[in-house]
Amino acid sequence: MSAVSDAIDARRSYSRVTAETPDRAELLRLVSVAGRVADHGSLRPWRLIELRGDARRRLGDALAEASGRLGDDAARLAAKALRAELLIAIVASRKESHKVYDWEQDAAAAGVAHALSLLLFDAGWGVMWRTGPFTRSEPVRRMHQLAPHEELLGWLYVGGVPSESKSSQKAPLDPAEFLSAL
C-alpha cells in the first residue's frame, strides 16, 4: 500500500479532543493541499470559517436559538459548540455556472472537508466532522454570515488526541457490497 492508502486506512474520528490546536499557519498549509480536490470547472465553490474563542460561544447561542429550547436544555445544546477549541465550518459557496450543477459544487466542498480532515489526522490532530438538525437553520446561517448562495455542510472539530482516546473506528467493510459492475 502507499502512504496515502495507509493514512486513509488509519484515519479515525475523535469525539473528544484536547485543547491543543493547530495554529493558523499550519491550517493555511493544510487548506492549500486540501483545495486540490476534484473540482469541475475549477470553481473552488467552497470556503472555510475558523471558529475559536468567542465565535464558538456565538455558535452555541445560535444553535440554542434555532432549537427553541430554554434553560438547561438550551445550555446543553450550546455547550456542544465548546467541545473543541477549534471548529472549522465547511461552507458550500456555489458559483454561477451553466455547466457545473449545484450538487457538483457541493461535492467539491465536501471533498475539501474530507481531504482537510485526512490531512489534519495525518498531521497528528484529532478530528470529527459534526452536523446536526440545526446546521442549516436561520440563526446558524446568520452567525456564520452566509450569503444567499451558500450552505453550511457542518464543522470539523479539531484538537489534540487525548492520551486515553476513544476514537471511532468503522467496522471493516466488504468492498464487493459497494462496488458493482454493469
Rank of each mutant, 00 (worst) to 15 (best):
I49Y: 01
V37N: 12
F178N: 10
E26P: 03
E151W: 02
G154S: 07
D73K: 15
A66K: 01
R44L: 10
V33F: 02
V158M: 06
A7R: 11
V112R: 02
R56E: 09
D102I: 04
V127F: 02
V91S: 03
A109F: 00
D39Q: 06
A62I: 04
R69C: 07
P148R: 09
L182A: 14
F178S: 13
D174H: 04
E65M: 10
F134C: 09
K80V: 03
R36L: 14
T135C: 10
L30V: 09
V100S: 04
L63D: 09
E65I: 07
K95M: 10
H149M: 06
L86S: 07
S97V: 07
V17Y: 00
R58D: 15
A34T: 08
D54A: 15
K80T: 14
I8H: 06
D122H: 09
T18Y: 00
R141H: 09
R57C: 09
K170R: 15
S93H: 12
A113H: 00
T131W: 04
R58P: 03
A55N: 10
P175D: 06
A34H: 03
S15Y: 05
R11G: 12
T18K: 02
A3L: 14
D23C: 10
D61E: 15
W129Q: 11
G71C: 08
E96A: 15
A113E: 03
R11F: 03
P133D: 13
G124I: 07
L63Y: 01
A74R: 09
E150L: 05
S97E: 08
D61L: 06
E20F: 01
L146P: 04
P139M: 01
G53F: 00
M128C: 13
A19V: 03
S168K: 14
R142V: 12
E150M: 07
H40I: 09
T18V: 07
M1P: 10
D23L: 06
A109W: 00
S117E: 11
R83L: 10
K170L: 13
S93A: 15
A108D: 06
R142W: 01
I88Y: 03
L173V: 15
V161E: 06
V37H: 07
R76P: 06
G111S: 11
L87M: 09
H114G: 11
R76I: 06
D6F: 03
Y101E: 13
V127R: 04
L43V: 08
E50V: 15
P45F: 05
D6V: 10
E20M: 02
A34P: 05
V140K: 01
M143N: 12
E26G: 12
L48S: 11
A62D: 07
G154W: 00
R12K: 10
A176S: 15
A34Y: 01
P175Q: 04
L118G: 11
Y157D: 07
P162K: 03
D39Y: 02
A181L: 08
A74P: 08
A64R: 04
D72K: 13
A108Q: 03
